[in-house]
Structure formats: C-alpha cells, structure tokens
Amino acid sequence: MNIFRLAGDLTHLISILVLLLKIYATKSCSGISLKTQELYALVFLARYLDLFTDFVSVYNTVMKLVFIGSSLAIVWCMRMHRIVKRSYNRELDTFRHYFLVAGSFVLALVVHEKFTLQEIFWAFSIYLEAVAILPQLVLLQRSGNVDNLTGQYVFFLGAYRAFYILNWIYRYFTEQRFGRWISWISGLVQTALYADFFYYYFMSWKNNAKLQLPA
C-alpha cells in the first residue's frame, strides 16, 4: 500500500465520519441527499460481492464492511429515524437517480472485462460511483447555503478519488501494472464532477467566507 492509496482511503473514511458526526450531533440531515446515499449503499453492495469469494487483507475486509455498514446506517437514519428524517430536504432532492442506476447497469453489461456476475457488478459499481455524487451536488446548488460539515463531507468524498488516481499513477510506475482502464476513466470522470465544487470550496476557504454555490 502506498501513501496515495492510504490518503485516499483515509479521506474516504473521514468523509463518512464527518457525515455521521453531522447527523449524530445535529440530529439533522439537512443538505444531505438521500439519493446519493442510496446510490453509495448500492455501489458498495455491488462491488464488495467479493467479500464472499476473495480475501486480500484484514484491512480491506474491515474497510469494506465499514463502507457497507455506514452507508446502510445513513440511509436507515434518513428514512426511518424519527427525528433525523424530519430535516430531510425531500422537495429539493428530486434527482432521478434511477436513471443513473439503469444507465450504469446497461453500460456494465456492454463494457466489462469478463462476462461474469461478479465482473459485471464490479463494473456497474465503478460506473455508478462515478456519478453517485450528482444528486448531492444538485441538492447543494438548489439550497444555496452549505453548512460547514456538509461542505467538508463533500470535499473529503471528492478528494478520495483524486488520491486514488495518484495511487494508480504511482502503481503504474512502480509495479508496471496498468490496473484497469475502466477504473481510470471512471475515476477521472468522478473527480472532474467535483471540479466546480472544489473551486468554490477553496475560494470560501481562502476568503474565510461561508461556502455558497451559485444557483
């Protein structure tokens, strides 16, 4: 494991912790897109089917379980928790996320490495993850004001894939392995979707001002 991969995993983990902290401390999920959370839960469930077939390391297994468990817990909170669900911005969170699921699945049926159940679900999870942030970004743009923890959450979630790209570049030179171009392209798309958000995040940080996204 290299430093970029570790940084990627840690920022991913931090993003989840920040989100859990926000929900736990404020008993509110305002500004958080349930659609994005559901997509992430689906991403992890589809990708980590290999929990049952392949063992890589204790680290990987624990992280996979944490990602699946936390994403399901967040979805549960936003749908079922008596207090938390009241603050959900249902009327702003109207992105048609089923189209993203359908589109990613069709793409996975067409573009994959091997025509096996696991490989198709793996490709599906990569494609879906690349676009899973869209409902969240749309929600933030609609609500205009972004509270501090929500801003941090999205920032860390975006930073994670950028670190993974550095990790793939590093591995390309050190291990002579190209990995899979499916993840390279999807990872680039995923990171590019955050470009706009990153810009306003850094501007607000530089100016010491509250993060606001233009409508």
Binding site: R5, D54, S57, W122, Y164, N167, E175, R177, R180, S183
Partner: peptide, 10 residues
C-alpha cells in the same frame, strides 16, 4: 487467476 492490481483496492 492472474494478479489484478485493481481488485486489491477498495
């Protein structure tokens, strides 16, 4: 199976 550099990631 051949080693796959992606499947050992998250």
């Amino acid at each position: 199976a051949e080693p796959n550099s992606v499947k050992d990631e998250l």
